[in-house]
Nucleic acid binder design. Structure first.
Length: 712
RNA sequence: GGGCGAUUAGCUCAGUUGGCUAGAGCGCUUCGUUUACACCGAAGAUGUCGGGGGUUCAAGUCCCUCAUCGCCCACCA
């Protein structure tokens, strides 16, 4: 027996094993093709190439790797594709922080210089993140590593844009969009969220009406009053009736409009509209063809239309305007405890300002519908019902998708404007400059527009032979991506390839800390998977990611849990030591006759094999792992090995021989069953296993998954 | 405002088509170092499975209801 078994398991040698696997070439399906007919492919969600892995990635990648290792052992031609995402807005935001530390700012910088700097920044981080993935033992094919800014990805993304534009799925429109004034870019709906806020709600006298508002600073050009047609309080006034109204900066003429959008329950039931700075008001203005004026500039300051308030920022202006209206006797009352939700940027928490801007939009209605149709036809499955509901809700209520971003870190939109700039009538779409006087759109694509192509571009769409792996088997990703990333991949897959890019959608929950709070960078409560690996070893860390992580459920990660699985790796190690010590003197032959007691043990092992196999096939890796833990520790170690000691003392020669043979079968089989979950220790042990009928390959990664007989 | 999820041992959580004498890890008590392992073993304590009602031969598991916590969605000015 190798001397190494006399010492506790040293997980520090894991990186050598990973190297050995890489050198073997078995991560690459091209080296697996012999006799492997069925294909099994998973595309890894590309982590943002701007930092290290977090525990969410840990769960994510571990689950996928378990599936890949399992199916590789089952004889499939397996492919797990790694990659990383440029994560446009997020990365640029992060780099801007770096700039700030250096006392610099992106404003005033040349776009090309900025892009270059961010590119270098990302490249230096990308490598670190890739090392982290290796540390987790993920058996992905690095020869197919992709980045969302690789030339072919950029090219394919642009081609899709051009195709969609030509076929009417993309249009340019002047719409009310979400504007982040601090980062100077527009955002899509899914990049914003609501934050509850306690504020003030003001009631002002407006001619014969009382109007309510939470935002007095936008009200300068409000010249239309909206009431509900059925509102009895305003029955005496006619639709389109005009009023002379004393307002913030003097008298104005206001017009009444009766429309059902007005809510009779809300305040006085009368409201004025500010089309440039409100989605609802904008729609209303379009409906009645009303003038649309900008009040607040792109930096969040008031424009000349505000008169004496010009140049003030929103919060400063609000107080002063209310003060002025109060002096004029127009302030009716202030509700001090007004609870409402403000829309903020998902990533930066900056309050977004609705602004009207010309942007590129994807028309979502038909694309959403075909995605739903494919779901109804059973062309793909969402494994958890809850998420299917959420998904259906989103797809049933599609909002046109703003894909223009005013940042440099991304793929520049292949559209060209002539002379008058961005609002010109003359627009050409295409990769090359259409002629003199045209300048390319400076905007870049929303990150999700390119990453929506991920399953396609990682497989080399449109021409690579790798497209044989399309559609992939399963999309396994965080639950929060069900309405962000997942629908976009489905849409592009259906649009470009007429097929959904994956058969199953498996969503895991969020990783939470000991208090059940979602782990996140901003809260600083994350447990880094790499730190856990350094402290407890990869195998223990992987087990802790998997056990008690059922599909769709949030999972809590604590050091205690990881520590418990470190003990388990030690247990596996010592079981091996005991068994190897005792079987070294016997000849291992398949046709050995087993004693009755051992036949029972092997039958029981058969049950374990079937449980583990069937549960992995059902994506219940959590239950499979837990069951293995229990079997190895409490059946093999506590019962079988203890019983073996008895037999060694008092058994007959035949009984001892039979038991030794049985232990060999148990050990090899257990290692195989454990391998997808705990790849390193199992491979380490496998190397020192004596040659015999159960050791079918040099490396356990390509050894055959144990068979079981359902009828036994 | 709408939707979803959670509530099981002191703590953190499993328990998926109803069959449980309700489990795991950590913690706790007692005993044990006999050549796999003290990163151990043996034995044990701790639970009206959030409250109430219902369906069933049988409910932690299904239904209704209430309570608390959490998450997501939402243009209510």
């Amino acid at each position: 027996m190798n001397q190494k078994f006399l010492q506790p398991y040293q997980f520090s040698e894991e990186s050598d094993i990973y190297k050995e696997w890489e050198d073997s070439g078995y991560f690459n399906p091209d080296n697996l093709s012999k006799g492997r007919i069925k294909k099994y492919c998973i595309v890894m969600p590309p982590p943002n190439a701007n930092g290290r892995l977090h525990s969410g990635h840990g769960t994510d990648f571990t689950l996928k790797d378990i599936l890949i290792r399992f199916y590789r052992m089952k004889g499939y031609q397996t492919l797990l594709i790694p990659g990383s995402d440029h994560a446009g807005f997020e990365t640029q935001g992060q780099y801007e922080k770096e700039l700030k530390k250096q006392g610099r700012s992106r404003f005033g910088m040349d776009d090309k210089d900025l892009y270059k700097e961010i590119f270098d920044f990302v490249m230096s981080h990308k490598h670190i993140m890739e090392e982290d993935i290796k540390k987790l033992g993920i058996s992905c094919d690095w020869s197919r590593n992709k980045f969302t800014l690789d030339k072919d990805v950029v090219s394919t993304t642009c081609d899709t844009f051009i195709k969609m534009y030509n076929e009417g799925f993309i249009y340019r429109g002047k719409r009310c969009i979400h504007w982040n004034p601090k980062f100077q870019t527009s955002l899509s709906d899914i990049e914003t969220k609501f934050k509850d806020e306690k504020g003030k709600f003001y009631y002002f006298k407006y001619g014969p009406f009382v109007i309510g508002t939470a935002r007095p600073e936008t009200k300068f050009s409000d010249k239309y009053i909206i009431v509900h047609p059925d509102d009895k309080r305003y029955k005496k006034y006619k639709n389109k009736q005009k009023f002379s109204v004393e307002w913030i900066n003097g008298p104005i003429e206001a017009t009444l409009i009766k429309d059902e959008v007005a809510n009779m329950e809300m305040g006085s039931g009368a409201m004025t509209i500010t089309p440039w700075h409100s989605q609802v008001d904008f729609d209303l203005a379009c409906k009645y063809d009303l003038p649309i004026e900008q009040i607040i500039d792109w930096n969040g300051k008031l424009l000349p239309i505000a008169g004496e308030f010009e140049g003030l920022n929103i919060s400063a202006a609000r107080e002063k305007i209310v003060e002025k209206l109060k002096k004029k006797g127009l302030l009716v009352k202030i509700d001090e405890n007004y609870e409402h939700a403000v829309r903020v940027c998902d990533r930066t928490n900056v309050v977004v300002e609705p602004q009207v801007k010309s942007q590129w939009f994807v028309k979502m209605d038909n694309l959403s519908k075909s995605s739903l149709d494919a779901l109804d036809e059973g062309r793909y499955k969402i494994l958890t019902k809850t998420h299917e509901k959420i998904f259906r809700h989103w797809m049933n209520n599609p909002i046109d998708w703003n894909i223009s971003r005013q940042i440099v870190w991304g793929i520049q939109i292949p559209a060209w404007f002539k002379d008058k700039g961005l609002d010109t009538e003359e627009i050409k779409v295409g990769k090359d400059c259409p002629g003199d006087g045209f300048i390319q759109d400076t905007d870049t694509f929303d990150t999700w527009f390119s990453s929506g192509h991920w399953p396609l571009v990682t497989l080399g769409y449109p021409n690579s032979s790798d497209m044989e792996f399309y559609p992939t088997q399963v999309m396994e990703t965080g639950a929060d991506l069900i309405f962000k990333w997942v629908p976009r991949m489905i849409i592009f897959g259906l649009y470009l390839k007429k097929e959904v890019p994956f058969k199953d959608i498996y969503l895991h929950g969020m990783t939470q800390d000991a208090k059940g709070v979602k782990m996140s960078k901003s809260k600083g409560n994350g447990l880094s998977p790499v730190d856990l690996v350094d402290e407890f070893g990869t195998d223990a860390t992987r087990m802790s990611f998997v056990v008690a992580t059922p599909p769709g459920m949030n999972t809590i990660l604590t050091k205690d849990k990881v520590r418990a699985y470190k003990k388990f790796t030690n247990k596996v190690w010592n079981i091996t030591r005991f068994i190897l010590e005792n079987i070294k003197d016997i000849e291992l032959k398949e046709d050995k006759i087993y004693q009755e007691k051992d036949i029972k043990i092997l039958k029981n092992l058969n049950t374990e094999i079937s449980f583990v196999t069937e549960h992995i096939e059902k994506y219940r890796m959590d239950l499979a792992a837990e069951r293995l833990y229990h079997y190895v520790w409490h059946d093999v170690a506590d019962k079988i090995l203890e019983d073996t000691k008895e037999i060694f003392k008092t058994g007959t020669k035949e009984e001892i021989q039979s038991r030794k043979q049985t232990l060999y079968v148990i050990l090899t089989t257990s290692l195989k069953l454990l391998h997808p979950f705990m790849p390193f220790i199992t491979e380490t042990i496998w190397k020192d296993l004596p040659e015999g009928f159960m050791k079918d390959e040099k490396l356990i990664i390509i050894s055959k998954w144990p068979n079981y007989d359902k009828n036994k």
